[in-house]
Simulated scan of single mutants.
Amino acid sequence: MTDDTQIAVDVRDAVKRYGDFTALQQISLGIRDNEFFTLLGPSGCGKTTLLRMIAGFEDVTEGAIFLYGDEIETLPPHQRPVNTVFQNYALFPHMTVLENVGFGLEMLGQSKAAARTRAAEMLELVQLSQFASRKPAQLSGGQQQRVALARALAPAPKVLLLDEPLSALDQKLRKAMQIELKHIQRETGITFIFVTHDQEEALTMSDRIAVMSAGELQQLGAPRDIYELPRNMFVADFIGDTNLLEVTVDEVTECRAACSLDGGLTLSCEAVEGVRKGAQVHLSIRPERLVLSETATGADSLRARVLENIFIGTDIATLLVLDNGSEITVRTSNSERGSKRIFDAGQMAFVTMERGAARLLRD
C-alpha cells in the first residue's frame, strides 16, 4: 500500500471520557481502504471503546471521526455504512442459517427473494452453503462465527468492525479462522478493523497494527516493524517474547550506540532518535536472535551460566544468567538441534547477538 491510498476511517484527536475517567487520550490514526487493520492491546486499553466510537455505539467526547471523508459523529449506528461482528455472534436461535444471514437485508427493505439470493452468496463465500437450513444450535462455534460474518458482510458495508470474534474458539480452530478471515477480507475488498489482545493473532492477520495501552496509541506500523523495531518498552514487552536489559548509553554516533550493562559488560546497537549519551534506558533483544556457543565469537559475546532448558515443541528455550546477574533467554529452533549445541543446566556458555538484533528503546 502506498501513502496516497484512500483513507477509509480517519480518527482525529479522538478523546473519550466517562466522567473523570479518560478512556481514550487524543487518538489520531488513518485506516486505509481495503486494509486489514488491527487494534491491539491488553484489556482496558481503549481498543474496544475506539471501535464502538467508529460504529456509533459510543459518542466522541472530543475530536472527530471521518468515514471516506465524511464526518460521521452525528450519524446514528444504523445510518453508518459499517457493520459489526461481535464476540458472542448474536444469532437468532429460532431462524435457520439462511434466514439469519438474510434478516438484516429484509430490514433494510430488500425483497425476501433478493435477500435469500444475497444470503446464499454470502454463505458460499464463507463455505457454509450446505448448512443453510440448519439452526445455529446445530453448528460448531467456528461455523456460528462464520454465519455471523456472512450476516455482517451481506449488506456490503464499506467497513467491517470485528470485536474479538475469535476469542471463544479453541486454539486450533482459532488459527484456521485467522487464515479464513484474511482470505475473506482480500476476496471482498472491504476494510476490516479487528480488535484483539492476542499478539500472535494480530501479527498473523494484519496489514498494519495500532498498539494501544492505557488509552494511548503506543505505535502504529506493519507487523514486522512492530515486532522488529518496537518504539518503547511497552511495545517490545507486549509483542512476543523479548529480553529487556537495563543499559547506560556510553557513546552515540550517527548510526550506532555503545551501551554498558552493570558489571562492565558492553554491547553495541543501532542508535535511535532521542537517545543521548549518559541516558539509562533499556535494550530489547529477541530470544531467537541470540546464539549460544562454547567460546566468544565476537566483541558482543556475553558469558553466562545455563539455568534450564524448556522444550516448547517447535523451539527450545534456554534460560541463562549473565555474569552481572541479569537473566536472559535464548530460543533455538527444534530443527537446528543437530547444528546448534544445547547446553545443560549449570554449564557455562557465551551468548552472541545476531547483527541488528539489539534495539534501544525510548522508555
Rank of each mutant, 00 (worst) to 15 (best):
F21Y: 14
F21E: 13
T22N: 09
T22Y: 11
A23W: 13
A23P: 15
L24D: 03
L24Y: 12
L24T: 11
L24N: 15
Q25C: 13
Q26I: 07
Q26H: 15
Q26V: 08
I27N: 04
I27K: 05
I27A: 15
I27D: 06
I27S: 07
I27H: 08
S28N: 11
L29N: 03
L29E: 06
L29M: 15
L29Y: 06
G30H: 11
I31A: 10
I31W: 14
R32A: 15
R32T: 07
D33G: 08
D33E: 15
D33F: 11
D33C: 12
N34W: 07
N34P: 08
E35F: 07
E35K: 02
E35S: 09
F36Q: 03
F37G: 03
F37M: 05
F37V: 02
T38P: 05
T38N: 08
T38V: 15
T38F: 05
T38Y: 06
T38C: 11
L39T: 04
L39I: 10
L39H: 06
L40N: 08
L40K: 06
G41W: 10
G41C: 11
S43F: 10
G44F: 10
G44C: 11
G44A: 09
C45A: 14
C45D: 08
G46N: 08
T48Q: 05
T48N: 11
T49E: 03
T49G: 05
T49L: 07
L50Q: 05
L51E: 01
R52G: 03
R52W: 02
M53V: 11
I54N: 01
A55G: 14
A55S: 11
A55F: 06
G56D: 00
F57V: 00
E58Q: 09
D59Q: 12
V60I: 15
V60C: 04
T61H: 08
T61Y: 09
E62C: 07
E62S: 12
E62W: 08
E62T: 07
G63Q: 12
G63M: 13
A64V: 10
A64D: 15
A64I: 03
F66N: 03
F66E: 09
L67Q: 04
L67G: 02
L67M: 13
Y68R: 06
Y68G: 03
Y68P: 01
Y68A: 01
G69D: 05
G69Y: 07
D70E: 15
D70Q: 14
I72L: 01
I72S: 02
E73W: 03
E73R: 13
T74D: 09
T74I: 05
L75A: 00
P76R: 00
